[in-house]
């Protein structure tokens, strides 16, 4: 899923780079602010990034003689919180791009957006929502982490397919089923690894899994209010993600979408409803390979919508449901 140089068009690279830089900048600002009390985070973020890199080298079989590897964003998010996970993934992707030719430097913003932000921060919000809905206790915690891991891989690969399609590198009718189909299986491996890592770490060093340790604690009186907000967000996001993920492959697997590359027919020629959406988008004039059917474009719009809703929802929750004590937010200890 590491996009090399030359696969994503300039304007998309620029857009994703700006979004990634802003998000990572915010994550760094938060980390630095926390550093006044928690200097330990500096070496911890570095060794965690090194851990993700090393763990990605442990391949697991996905059948048919092929293998997949760990992404790690949700696992790190469950252990250290979403912003630290985003930073750790940014470090990993930068090192992989610089030193190992794994992901291009011009596509670094795209890769950070896909794997660190869309695949890291957003599923972590889903995980919180799920934990509010599921019974509290280890079963609920592990289930939420597993689902979030799978969704993380699906979201990251969908975003990757979408960017490739918008760049005209691979038509959506090919890129989407290929990327998302493969990653639906890899995501199961990711979920298994996430669960195994969390249970192993909780068994060996329960003190470093703050969210796990908190399971047994009596929560404050504000608990019900916070839980219901997260439950609402979680339910909404689950529905939105299922629509985006399960809707789009159905649409794109229809023979209509496979018949032709739509190099000759871009997005702007589709229905007027789509046109109003896309002409107002930050990058309206792209030639979109392969998008001909309204179903596909609706699915894509749904995916983009999900991502936007996630971001807006998070901002809203941050404002509305500010935790009473300092030790709330990112699940850090």
């Amino acid at each position: 899923m590491h996009v090399p140089d030359g696969f994503v068009s300039g304007p998309i690279n620029a857009t994703t780079a700006v979004v990634s830089a802003a998000t990572v900048g915010f994550a760094m600002w938060r980390a630095q602010r926390e550093l006044r009390e928690k200097e330990f985070r500096v070496p911890l973020l570095a060794t965690t990034a090194a851990f993700v890199f090393a763990a990605q080298m442990l391949n697991f079989p996905i059948g048919g003689g092929t293998s997949g590897h760990f992404l790690g964003a949700v696992t790190v998010a469950a252990l250290l919180g979403p912003w630290s996970a985003c930073l750790a993934l940014t470090l990993v992707l930068t090192i992989q791009g610089l030193l190992f030719g794994d992901g291009g430097i011009s596509a670094l913003g795209t890769n950070i957006l896909n794997m660190g932000i869309i695949g890291g921060i957003l599923p972590c919000l889903l995980m919180r929502g799920l934990r509010a809905l599921l019974p509290s206790g280890r079963g609920g915690y592990v289930t939420a982490a597993a689902v979030a891991s799978w969704v993380s891989v699906m979201l990251a690969s969908s975003a990757c397919a979408l960017e490739l399609a918008l760049s005209g590198t691979s038509p959506i009718a090919i890129a989407f089923p290929a990327m998302v189909g493969t990653h639906a299986v890899i995501g199961i491996g990711e979920a298994l690894i996430c669960v195994a890592v969390l249970t192993a770490v909780a068994a060996a060093r329960p003190d470093i899994v703050p969210s796990w340790a908190r399971l047994n604690e009596r929560e404050s009186g504000n608990r019900f209010a916070r839980r219901s907000v997260w439950a609402l967000v979680g339910a909404g996001l689950t529905v939105a993600i299922s629509l985006a993920i399960f809707g789009s492959p159905f649409a794109s697997s229809s023979p209509d979408g496979l018949e032709k590359v739509a190099a000759d027919k871009g997005f702007l020629q589709s229905s007027s409803a789509e046109k109003t959406v896309w002409t107002k988008a930050p990058f309206p004039d792209y030639q979109v390979g392969g998008i001909r059917t309204e179903k596909v474009s609706t699915g894509l719009a749904g995916l983009i919508g999900t991502v936007l809703v996630f971001g807006l929802g998070f901002a809203l929750i941050k404002v509305v449901a500010r935790p009473p004590a300092k030790a709330g937010g990112a699940g850090m200890k």
Binding site: F51, A196, R205
Partner: peptide, 16 residues
């Protein structure tokens, strides 16, 4: 993959 996960869990504790 769960075995890889256990190895990765051990690796995380070491990295910590």
């Amino acid at each position: 993959a769960i075995i890889v996960g256990r190895l990765a869990g051990s690796l995380f504790v070491r990295s910590y």
